[in-house]
């Protein structure tokens, strides 16, 4: 009963969010300086008057704004994201093609940063004031202030140019076509290491700081004293009564950070030439291919909402109080 209600509430929330995002897209196109038709054509110097006129007709730009708005929303609902004049392809096809690599990158970075952050944060919090705490806190402070793209470049400099451990860019070897599936997976994994670590490191720093603070707070809570008064060992108190309690806020926060994570993926994919949505964003920015950019923004927002749902689910498993009230 209440589960159904909360599901309904979630779904309307998502629908509303998508509506807002689509509206932002619509407003953006129409607030651009100059002719919206030129925006859609891309400022490629394609000033062929007949071509512009055709776009104007195709997109109904000669119609009143609310007709345009409803027709745009209808298109979004039917997953019609428009046509890229520059790439001569449907935007939804272009995006779908690149979705896999981005999911692989962001999800592995998300998992890595969360696990690493909880681990290092707990370690620092438990050993508060020791050199371990100091080292972890300092590393987190520095990583937190590092531009993602620059950190990626530095990893390339060290691990691929100097040490030659991992490839510097790309998704798979050029000869990948002749690989067995197993070899192919291994090859992709080798290519994945540097981008995933780059993207994960920054957020790991955030989660480490948060987990450290959270664990220290939990360690002062009354129920930890109760556990001690029960005669439990410190190890058991940590596992049974502190870690889970401290990780809750970190997971919630991680969900809120999903948007930033996707944003980070754009830069990381640019640095490592990872053929995902981020690289597509960079290429479309360079080419001023606006229909693709608008479509990307919409899809990435939906991706963020999906990650939010995922963290919400994890948090529900960790904390019985959520959803019960």
């Amino acid at each position: 009963m209440s589960a159904v209600k909360s599901l309904v509430s979630k779904l309307t929330g998502i629908a509303f969010a998508i509506l807002v995002i689509a509206t932002i897209n619509f407003v953006l196109v129409h607030s651009a300086p100059g002719d919206p038709a030129l925006v859609i054509a891309g400022q490629s110097g394609a000033t062929d008057a007949e071509f512009i006129e055709q776009i104007r007709r195709d997109y109904g730009l000669d119609q009143p704004w609310f007709v345009q708005y409803t027709s745009y929303l209808t298109k979004v609902v039917t997953l019609d994201l428009g046509y890229s004049v520059r790439q001569r392809a449907d935007v939804s096809d272009l995006i779908l093609e690149r979705l896999g690599p981005t999911l692989l990158l962001t999800l592995s970075a998300f998992g890595l940063s969360l696990i690493g952050g909880v681990f290092f944060g707990a370690l620092a919090g438990l050993r508060q004031g020791t050199w371990k705490d100091l080292a972890i806190s300092l590393a987190a402070l520095i990583l937190y202030a590092t531009p993602v793209f620059w950190f990626g470049l530095m990893l390339v400099l060290v691990f691929s140019i100097n040490l030659e451990w991992f490839p510097a860019f790309g998704y798979a070897n050029i000869r990948a076509a002749s690989f067995t599936p197993w070899q192919y997976a291994l090859d992709v994994a080798r290519h994945l290491v540097l981008p995933a670590v780059t993207l994960a490191a920054i957020y790991m720093a955030v989660y480490t700081r948060l987990m450290r603070a959270s664990l220290i707070e939990v360690s002062h809570e009354d129920h930890v004293k109760t556990a001690r008064a029960k005669g439990l060992t410190e190890g058991r108190i940590l596992r049974g009564h502190m870690l889970r309690n401290a990780a809750g806020p970190v997971i919630t926060f991680a969900g809120l950070q999903a948007g930033a994570l996707i944003g980070g993926a754009v830069v990381v994919e640019t640095v490592f030439s990872w053929p995902g949505l981020g690289r597509l964003t960079f290429d479309s920015v360079t080419a001023r291919d606006y229909p693709v950019l608008l479509g990307l923004f919409l899809v990435m927002s939906i991706l963020v909402i999906a990650i939010n749902l995922l963290t919400d689910l994890i948090h529900r498993l960790v904390d019985p109080r959520i959803g019960a009230r």
């Binding site: 009354d222 129920h223 001690r228 009564h241």
Partner: peptide, 24 residues
């Protein structure tokens, strides 16, 4: 001490709202 705690000597606290682990 751990053998005594919760064994031969037990203790209860003031604040029942916070003395129990909320997640267990």
């Amino acid at each position: 001490l751990r053998r005594l705690r919760g064994g031969e000597i037990a203790m209860i606290f003031q604040e029942p709202m916070t003395a129990l682990n909320p997640l267990a």
